[in-house]
Simulated assay, not measured.
Amino acid sequence: MASITRTQDITPLKDSPFCVLVNDIEVKAVPGESVLSTLLASEFRRLMKNDFGASSGAFCGMGVCHCCLVEINGRHKQRACQTLVQPNMTIRTCRNRVIEGDSKHV
Rank of each mutant, 00 (worst) to 15 (best):
residue 2 A to C: 02
residue 2 A to D: 15
residue 2 A to Q: 11
residue 2 A to I: 06
residue 2 A to V: 07
residue 3 S to D: 08
residue 4 I to L: 06
residue 6 R to D: 04
residue 8 Q to H: 13
residue 9 D to I: 05
residue 10 I to L: 10
residue 10 I to K: 13
residue 14 K to D: 10
residue 14 K to C: 10
residue 15 D to R: 14
residue 16 S to E: 14
residue 19 C to Y: 11
residue 21 L to P: 03
residue 21 L to E: 09
residue 21 L to I: 03
residue 22 V to A: 06
residue 22 V to P: 01
residue 22 V to R: 01
residue 22 V to L: 05
residue 23 N to R: 02
residue 25 I to W: 03
residue 26 E to N: 10
residue 27 V to A: 00
residue 27 V to L: 02
residue 28 K to V: 07
residue 28 K to S: 13
residue 28 K to C: 03
residue 28 K to M: 12
residue 28 K to Y: 11
residue 29 A to Y: 02
residue 30 V to N: 05
residue 31 P to E: 10
residue 32 G to M: 09
residue 32 G to F: 04
residue 33 E to W: 05
residue 33 E to L: 04
residue 34 S to F: 02
residue 37 S to E: 14
residue 38 T to G: 05
residue 41 A to H: 13
residue 42 S to G: 01
residue 45 R to M: 09
residue 47 L to F: 01
residue 48 M to W: 04
residue 49 K to F: 02
residue 49 K to H: 07
residue 50 N to T: 03
residue 51 D to N: 12
residue 52 F to E: 14
residue 53 G to K: 09
residue 53 G to Y: 09
residue 53 G to N: 07
residue 54 A to Y: 15
residue 55 S to G: 07
residue 55 S to R: 12
residue 56 S to L: 10
residue 56 S to E: 11
residue 57 G to P: 06
residue 58 A to D: 04
residue 58 A to S: 13
residue 59 F to V: 12
residue 59 F to C: 07
residue 59 F to P: 06
residue 60 C to N: 06
residue 61 G to F: 08
residue 63 G to Q: 04
residue 63 G to A: 06
residue 64 V to R: 07
residue 65 C to I: 05
residue 67 C to E: 15
residue 67 C to N: 14
residue 68 C to E: 04
residue 69 L to C: 05
residue 70 V to G: 00
residue 70 V to M: 11
residue 71 E to M: 15
residue 71 E to W: 03
residue 75 R to I: 13
residue 76 H to G: 00
residue 77 K to F: 04
residue 79 R to Y: 10
residue 79 R to I: 01
residue 80 A to W: 01
residue 82 Q to P: 02
residue 82 Q to H: 02
residue 83 T to W: 02
residue 83 T to Q: 05
residue 87 P to N: 08
residue 87 P to G: 07
residue 88 N to I: 06
residue 90 T to Y: 03
residue 91 I to H: 01
residue 91 I to W: 01
residue 92 R to F: 03
residue 93 T to F: 00
residue 94 C to K: 10
residue 95 R to D: 00
residue 96 N to T: 10
residue 96 N to L: 03
residue 96 N to H: 06
residue 96 N to I: 08
residue 99 I to Q: 12
residue 99 I to K: 09
residue 101 G to H: 11
residue 101 G to Q: 13
residue 102 D to M: 10
residue 102 D to P: 01
residue 102 D to I: 14
residue 103 S to I: 15
residue 103 S to T: 15
residue 104 K to R: 12
residue 104 K to A: 08
residue 105 H to F: 11
residue 105 H to A: 10
residue 105 H to I: 13
residue 105 H to Y: 05
